[in-house]
Design a protein around this nucleic acid. Structure first.
Lengths: 149, 149
DNA sequence: ATTCTAATGATAAAATTAATAGACATCCTG
DNA sequence: CAGGATGTCTATTAATTTTATCATTAGAAT
């Protein structure tokens, strides 16, 4: 399960992806339009900046922008930064493997072997979907809605 | 991420799947061979019993057994019982859907649409793998190991 | 019946993680 | 320099997870 941090972070990134590139958004603006507690969003965007996914500028005319184009930012990357590894269990993670301290013999651990499959499945989706894809989904969803009305 | 509860539960079920069917295992035995705190395992097995996946018998000669054959128990089912829905976000869950209270319009929420894909991918793996598969993995792992020595 | 065995339940303590808030520093722009 | 915006540090609150304690209940064997 994604934490709120992860969810908020994805929504914020989606928000940024929806602006003309280079045009900064204010934290306050992102927070209010997405119903995210402002201060929490501050720390979330801070982490995304430290990870190099967004740029920030202080002072008047400042705010946050994407550090790369939306096509180059993978959903999996955002989630890893905010919520940690995608794998259901750490001994099945590629990006941040850690041995289980219980578990005598990893090679014959059925749990791990199934979770490796699961990790693969999750990563295949989330590492191939980009922010741009996510935004396209959203816009298409909106369009369908407009169409219905 | 799976919690320890989920991990322990899977290991315990795997343990039961490795016994001749009908032959009960003691909680203490499962706990010590798998390095699981006994009392925690008590509650875990209790939940699995309430969910109908295992049977329990008190008194001498008692213990826990699988309630169905290992081929009929899906890994996804065990995890849902112990750790809740597989979907990364509740508004993307099929078995226990719940609307996000933030999020004006669900149909145009890009986050949700990507997470629906992720949920599908996870469920495809975990709802098709059975305890028996998991056990087979484990045994094969062991065999490979023996082979290497 | 009594005794031994083993699961059950209730509860609460400890540890960890998630979520939010406040105060002050820093930086940029005009 | 003034004011608007992020950055940092700290602390608090809440929720969840994990573990432990103690007393109870049910079953089998004698």
């Amino acid at each position: 399960m994604l934490t709120k941090k992860g969810k908020y972070g994805l929504k914020a990134m989606l928000h940024l992806a929806g602006r003309p590139p280079g045009q900064p958004s204010l934290v306050t603006e992102i927070a209010t339009t997405n119903a995210i507690p402002k201060k929490f969003l501050d720390t979330i965007l801070g982490e995304l900046r430290n990870a190099g996914l967004v740029n920030s500028k202080k002072g008047k005319g400042g705010g946050y922008t994407l550090a790369r184009s939306a096509q180059e930012i993978r959903v999996g990357h955002i989630i890893r930064i905010l919520d940690g590894p995608l794998a259901p269990i750490q001994c099945a993670s590629k990006t941040s493997y850690r041995r289980c301290d219980d578990c005598k013999d990893e090679k014959s651990c059925g749990v791990r072997l199934v979770m490796l499959e699961a990790r693969e499945a999750i990563a295949t989706v989330l590492d191939n979907r980009t922010l741009a894809d996510m935004r396209a989904f959203a816009v298409r969803g909106e369009a369908e809605l407009t169409y219905c009305i």
